[in-house]
Design a protein around this nucleic acid. Structure first.
Lengths: 132, 132
DNA sequence: ATTATATATAACTTATTTGTTATATAACTT
DNA sequence: AAGTTATATAACAAATAAGTTATATATAAT
């Protein structure tokens, strides 16, 4: 379980960076290729320094990096930290699904015991009828 | 592309909730089953009201819900919003990988043109040698 | 050299977050 | 009814975030 804690500071930065809709939109833009700061300013109703700040947040989280082309400092996506965050979420999703299944199994056993006293039918598995 | 924007406010709340290591640890605890507020206070070097606040953040994000058992208000995980966040990340991961592949394909074409002038060997595909 | 363009940084404001301690409320126990 | 236990809420302080405008810096173009 402790491996889930290891990159804690990085996960902090990654999730915090993703928590802002402007920053997610910037990533969406960058998903279709490099873009300069000005390219990124245009679509948003926001000042250039504000965008530069968002870019700094994304960069500190490792989600983007900057190149150089004359005066331009084009940004591009860096896939790895996102992959980490994605893995973290997937791990937890599995953990939870796992625990639901354990709960289901337990409830099924209880139902089986109960029904065994009345009939001999085998109970069905489902978690739709369980109030989580 | 616009479907990625739809649950924007919810994604904000979900990612913001996940950006705190205490809250992620709480989720880790809850992954192995329900827990009361006091259960959750114990492992953290933090006051009970602080934990209650974190729980409120997780609850507003829809990541947990509260039951009732005498004075206790046991918390449990709600899987859906997490699944949404996870899906969002996976979508972007794919988008980016997609664009890397497009870039690779382009570079392969250029290499092919170049090499065709010298030899007639077919070039290999890889993105390890590309500076993203 | 001067000017124009692209980006970064500083100083500031306002709002939000994260913790604290003290206190209130709700449910159980005796 | 009085005390205990579990949780919530209020009031506060300090830190961080997100935007603004004004200005500095770096590169290019004339």
């Amino acid at each position: 379980m402790s491996y889930l804690q290891i990159n804690s500071a990085r996960l902090d930065a990654t999730f915090a960076a993703l928590a802002d809709p402007t920053r997610r939109a910037i990533l969406a833009k960058l998903a279709s290729g490099e873009a300069s700061v000005n390219d990124l300013v245009k679509p948003f109703n926001m000042s250039q320094p504000a965008i530069s700040k968002h870019l700094r947040v994304l960069e500190r989280a490792g989600l983007i990096s900057r190149g150089r082309d004359a005066q331009r400092r084009p940004r591009r996506i860096e896939a790895q930290p996102l992959a980490e965050a994605s893995d973290w979420l997937e791990n937890y999703r599995k953990l939870w699904e796992g625990s639901f299944q354990k709960l289901d199994a337990l409830l099924d056993e209880l139902k089986a015991l109960d029904k065994d006293k009345k009939s001999r039918r085998k109970p069905r598995r489902s978690h739709k009828d369980v109030q989580h």
